[in-house]
Nucleic acid binder design. Structure first.
Lengths: 339, 339
DNA sequence: CTGAAAGCGCTTACAG
DNA sequence: CTGAAAGCGCTTACAG
């Protein structure tokens, strides 16, 4: 039993296909009486609009692609939901794929989505994406796209993310006001643009508030390593610092567990702070100080920027940085000061 | 500058469109020399295969729809990733949408996906979905679909989920062996099939191990309420029981915080256990006992079942229950017994 | 081994 | 206000 098409509907109520097509879009060109008759036929036959056919003819697809690395980080989950929300509200349906931080997998996803003729792409790039990885698929003006959260060095395009430098400054100033004197930065992938920016901001925030020798140590994560082993590796190199700043909340959660396992009480013996402010940050023991990255705003802005790009494909790429917000909690404010 | 089509490629290398089409699928009907020439033209012109056109002609879409409620629960995030993985590996691209547990939003998503002519749908239904909500869009044999994690009472179709009754039994027997005598069940939406099954299993597990008056209280969550207010509402009704079983890990995390806020130490003063075993369960203070629901298996099986359904649309619906696994941790094992 | 033609289900000028 | 025809970019028999 074949699905009914507009041809069947047209035959059923004795009008032409063109008329049915106009009724589908509620065109004022068709009279109310005819419209009513056509709609009754549709309901009776169980007609379902075929967007693929419509879009093929009109050369758009009403779909957007979203490729992120994974959803294990609640920040990425929020981002994904915000983008889906904005896309849906603008009449687009979302293709979704996960690169798992692997460039070849990312490449396959982008290629497939391009073949499905998505109208535009939002990409949270895999860590070691190079410009050519993007150029060969979405670059060269073939496909409107915007990068989120991570930029790719040497690749210019629309970008939306939290202002990592500013987040670092906020945390640096906060810790400076608490009069910490030694700080370690733990976690994040070496070479990541976000990590570099967060460290840079942290350094200048600390300096600005009078901390003279700020970063005692900065340790990137190796592979999928979490916060716990980072604590051990830190303690092999330096005595426990006054404060630890984690690359993000997920690392911070692990770091606090790692500290406890070593008999060090986070919040009291060492101040711990981080980036993102995912919902669980407020419910840690102790509650975690974090610089909020507002994924719902990043997601909404990224979608907005992509849709704007459709209007004006040749506009110069823009970079939108979302203002972060420091959420101080007792993981830093209850720090007891140096012994 | 229009995108090149097979017609352009055909003109460029002096063959017919049909030949180019055959080369795209690497058909043995075309000679190596010709293939080589065609492929060079494609590369030179920057040809990108148009799946939409191809699929329209061949009456499939190579896409699957996935609609879940949201991604705030890590269990759903894992499930989503597992389904994406299985779909991608089978050559399908995934449309994704979030119902936010709202039936009208779910309905809109299903309708749009049907219009995009997805080949099949995987749905984690919004809480108060009724059979007619599904029948009107995906039901009536129009669209292959499988439900995951939550079933809809009175709606028969393919279903994959963790075995909730069995999970409850495992937890009940575990708590029984620890010789608890009063147990409260907290959280979950009233009327949810999963909640009913978990409570039922818990009850028979407790009874089976000799606990005579098992459930002192069973309190569903009101709206979006988390674990913390549930603790307060419980303590208004009964004295703190020997054990609290949460509807899932997310509630359990809140419940442990709520207990602490009341000066009750989870794990020592009251045993706490739960369902799902999301990654963070192991890193709570104390580490949380949970019945693992294996989302990666549920996701893979659901995708498998859907693809099988394509082969045999008229087969009777099957229900696949994934065997859970009890992961005992100190939130129960360190319980000190009744005072 | 390759080509000409029809068709997938729509939309879009263009007539009338 | 409505209809006939062409076309979106492919695939699929069918010839040769």
């Amino acid at each position: 039993m074949r699905r009914p098409t507009i041809k069947d509907v047209a035959a059923d109520c004795g009008v032409s296909k063109a008329t049915v097509s106009l009724v589908l879009r509620d065109s004022p060109q068709v009279g109310q009486v005819t419209k009513q008759r056509v709609r009754e036929s549709m309901a009776r036959l169980g007609y379902v609009y075929n967007r693929r056919a419509a879009d093929m003819r009109s050369q758009r697809s009403q779909t957007l692609g979203l490729v992120v690395t994974h959803l294990r980080n609640p920040y990425f989950a929020e981002l994904t939901m915000a983008i889906e929300d904005a896309a849906t509200k603008s009449g687009y349906t979302l293709f979704q794929g996960f690169s798992r931080d692997e460039v070849p997998q990312q490449r396959r996803l982008l290629e497939t989505m391009a073949e499905h003729r998505i109208d535009g792409l939002i990409l949270l790039p895999a860590h070691d994406s190079r410009p050519e990885d993007l150029l060969e698929t979405v670059g060269a003006g073939q496909l409107a796209h915007v990068l989120i959260t991570r930029s790719v060095r040497g690749y210019e395009c629309d970008y939306v993310g939290a202002d990592n430098v500013r987040s670092g400054v906020l945390l640096g100033e906060h810790l400076g006001a608490l009069e910490v004197s030694t700080v370690a930065f733990l976690g994040g992938a070496e070479g990541s643009s976000a990590r570099r920016d967060r460290i840079e901001g942290l350094g200048s925030g600390l300096r600005r508030s009078g901390v003279t020798s700020p970063l005692a140590l900065s340790l990137p994560a190796i592979g999928d390593e979490g916060g716990i082993p980072l604590v051990d590796r830190m303690l092999e190199r330096i005595p426990c610092p006054d404060a630890i700043v984690a690359y993000n909340d997920m690392y911070a959660f692990g770091i606090m567990n790692g500290l406890r396992a070593r008999g060090i009480v986070p919040g009291r013996d060492v101040a711990v702070a981080s980036f993102d402010d995912v919902p669980d940050a407020a419910f840690q023991q102790p509650p975690l100080t974090s610089a909020a990255g507002h994924p719902e705003i990043v997601g909404a802005q990224a979608t907005r920027l992509l849709l704007d790009r459709f209007e004006d494909p040749d506009r110069v790429p823009s970079t939108v940085l979302i203002e972060p917000e420091l959420i101080p909690r007792s993981s830093t404010t209850s720090w007891s000061g140096r012994a």
